[in-house]
Design a binder for these strands. Structure first.
Length: 679
DNA sequence: GTTAGGG
DNA sequence: CCCTAAC
């Protein structure tokens, strides 16, 4: 019965909503040394973070049928049209702007004209990814701004909502704190469209009414926000940001905002973080995918009219079979979120910047040799630096619904999942060489984030507001988090392994395995992964896995940094059924044929690579050799261990034998050959 | 791309 | 699990 029930469900594993090219440089690239850009060292006075989480929530297909103005906004094509329209009407109200559903690539478009809208666009991004735009500002103007802004902010509760109401023009351009942006977007609701064709999910804001509840500390100097033909009026004309205090620099958007680190919110009470700044490490294939080759493939780029080829665009991870399939059959849990939200690449863009800004050629930017390629710098003589962080990925989601569920319910499920994830809000963290910069009052210069070199080591991360402030707590070892995560949802008993097993079992093995998978799931109940919430926390803590990469955005590159920044994959203990499948396969195929083993017994378990299997076998052999008291983790039936030993012994011998045989044959052949030669 | 091993 | 050398 259990088995049957299990089979009746479909489990979906999302590694993020399908989308825009987000890119992550290849590992090799990440390790490369620091960027060798010759740009002048910019003194970044302040940086702006514009972040948006374009997430999407769904609605019932039925309910979604109800159309409203926002309906059309969900259409992929809409985005472009809106953009075009905006070009014609620079003073378009926020409302009109907030409905893009473009791809990330679009967000990266930086024409002079659009640069000012980049932020907004990011916000509009419905790709579940958070797009951040960072714009450095002039030192001088910045300090002035800070003071003024501070005063202003203190005397006034700044609400995005208010701004919007009072200034229906480009206020939308104002950068927002990531968490607020995301929060706002989420609160607004998203529409989710499922593309059955590719099992992808796309998210789009239902509307553009972003409401931010918390006061903002903003330092704005964004001439670009003003229409040259219109009265120059600060978007914050409410008095918050005296335009007089801002200097203008060509088309640069100079924005600055302060982010109080102390406000690091906790995303979810259960969320915890670990190596937050470690970019997720997906399976090798994925990493390898992130090669220059992939860049060319990014289809969205063309459509988005990338005006800057130097903008690093990381290819989507999707569709890498070896690494987590998008859709998975699963048993048990409704969903699981893995790892961090995702990481993004930090990319500076030169859009609209001074002519002397350093322009990076595509090669440069994506070339594996340049670590900083992902973090492009454009430093002008006047110390202006503009850079952007693109596309934070949403954590991997696991959703399970009955086969009989409607598409609408599936959408709802996804929505709920995303909502739950974002409910707590997001917070932005700044990392310098992997270390979080906590003092918000320090200037960038003081923090050492004022030169090209530092930018190379600069990273941003999105964290659930509920996260603890010590990202490293659980680094490398989820167990601590595990124990600290008592919360467990009864409704989500299934575990990763269980799911995997279910999948595997249902497709490859027998009922026995199914039963075991059930058992496994139970046995894993203590595993954080099992619990959705726990999983989340753990996820955040331990891994920005494959699709659900961490929010941490780090300029990947240096080798030294590599170890610190690269996120480790989520640990996924092998279940008994998995072990059995492995043993069975090895018994048949022997060791040394891991690829075959993988194909035979774990083909559908995308999270298990042949290397994983090989490693597991290695540990199994070791486990079998030690006394039970020394064994840890889920107990593997002695019977299986015996089989492991037997197999190991057999194949060791067999291989040796074969080798010997082969050697003998060769020798013999040589002998024969020699003999024949003599003849 | 796979294997094999050390970390 | 990660990372690499070696193939």
């Amino acid at each position: 019965m259990y088995v049957r029930a299990m089979m009746e469900r479909l489990d979906y594993g999302f590694r993020g909503f399908q989308v825009p090219p987000t890119a992550r440089r290849p590992r090799s690239t990440r390790r490369r040394g620091p960027s060798k850009k010759s740009a002048e060292v910019g003194q970044v006075c302040a940086f702006e973070l514009l972040a948006t989480l374009a997430g999407k929530l769904l609605q019932d297909s039925e309910s979604s049928a109800s159309s409203n103005a926002s309906e059309g906004m969900n259409h992929p094509a809409f985005s472009q049209s809106v953009v075009e329209k905006e070009r014609q009407d620079e003073v378009k109200p926020l409302k009109a702007k907030g409905i893009h559903n473009g791809s990330c690539a679009e967000c990266t478009v930086k024409t002079e004209m659009e640069s000012q809208r980049s932020i907004q666009k990011c916000l509009e991004h419905a790709e579940t990814d958070c797009i951040l735009e960072c714009v450095s500002v002039n030192d001088n103007s910045c300090s002035d701004c800070w003071e003024k802004v501070e005063a202003e902010v203190k005397s006034k509760r700044f609400r995005w909502e208010n701004k919007f109401e009072h200034h229906s023009n480009r206020l939308v351009e104002i950068p927002e704190d990531v968490r607020e942006s995301c929060d706002g977007v989420i609160k607004n609701g998203f529409r989710q469209e499922q593309e059955t064709s590719n099992s992808g999910f796309m998210a789009s804001p239902l509307n553009n009414n972003f409401i931010f509840k918390e006061p903002l500390d903003l330092c704005i100097n964004s001439p670009a926000l003003f229409d040259s033909n219109s009265n120059i009026k600060s978007p914050f004309s409410g008095g918050l940001f005296p335009s007089a205090s801002f200097s203008r620099h060509g088309n640069d958007n100079k924005l600055g905002f302060r982010d109080d680190d102390e406000n690091f919110l906790r995303w979810n009470r259960v969320w915890t973080k670990s190596k937050a700044f470690k970019p997720p490490q997906r399976c090798r294939r994925i990493r390898k995918l992130a090669t220059s080759k992939c860049w060319k493939v990014a289809p969205n780029l063309k459509d988005c009219k990338h005006s800057r080829t130097d903008e690093g665009v990381i290819p989507p991870y999707r569709k890498r079979k070896t690494c987590y399939s998008f859709v998975r059959y699963r048993h048990g849990s409704l969903f699981k979120r893995r790892k961090y939200f995702g990481w993004g690449s930090v990319i500076t863009s030169d859009g609209g910047f001074s002519s002397d800004s350093v322009s990076n050629s595509p090669d440069k930017g994506m070339d594996g040799d340049n670590l900083n390629s992902s973090a492009k710098l454009h430093v002008s003589k006047d110390s202006h630096v503009k850079f952007s962080i693109k596309s934070f990925r949403i954590p991997e989601l696991y959703i399970e619904v009955p086969k009989t569920a409607t598409v609408g319910s599936l959408k709802r499920k996804v929505k709920e999942t995303v909502m739950a994830m974002l409910e707590g809000g997001l917070h932005v963290g700044v990392l310098l060489q992997g270390k979080k910069v906590r003092d918000d009052n320090r200037t960038l210069r003081q923090s050492g984030i004022s030169c090209e070199e530092s930018l190379d080591k600069l990273g941003f991360m999105l964290e659930p507001s509920s996260m603890q402030d010590s990202p490293l707590v659980c680094v490398g070892d989820p167990s601590p988090c595990k124990t600290s995560q008592p919360v467990r949802s009864p409704e989500t008993p299934a575990l990763d392994s269980a799911i995997t097993n279910a999948l595997h079992d249902s497709l490859l093995t027998n009922n026995v395995n199914l039963v075991e998978s059930n058992h496994d799931s139970n046995s894993f109940s203590t595993d954080p992964i099992a619990d959705k919430i726990t999983t989340d926390s753990r996820t955040l803590v331990t891994v920005p896995t494959r699709s659900a990469e961490a929010l941490a955005v780090v300029p990947v590159g240096q080798k030294t940094r590599h170890s610190e920044l690269v996120q480790r994959r989520t640990r996924r203990p092998f279940s008994v059924s998995e072990v059995e499948a492995l043993v069975e396969a090895v018994e048949e195929l022997g060791t040394g044929r891991w690829r075959d083993v993988k194909l035979r017994a774990f083909e559908n378990a995308d999270h298990r690579t042949y290397v994983d299997l090989k490693d597991k076998w290695k540990t199994l052999v070791h486990t079998a050799k030690i006394c039970p008291q020394q064994r840890r983790g889920e107990a593997v039936p002695q019977i299986l261990l015996d089989r492991v030993l037997a197999s190991h012994a057999y194949w060791s011998h067999h291989q040796a034998k074969q080798h010997t045989k082969h050697h003998q044959i060769v020798t013999m052949n040589d002998t024969v050959l020699m003999a024949s030669n003599h003849m």
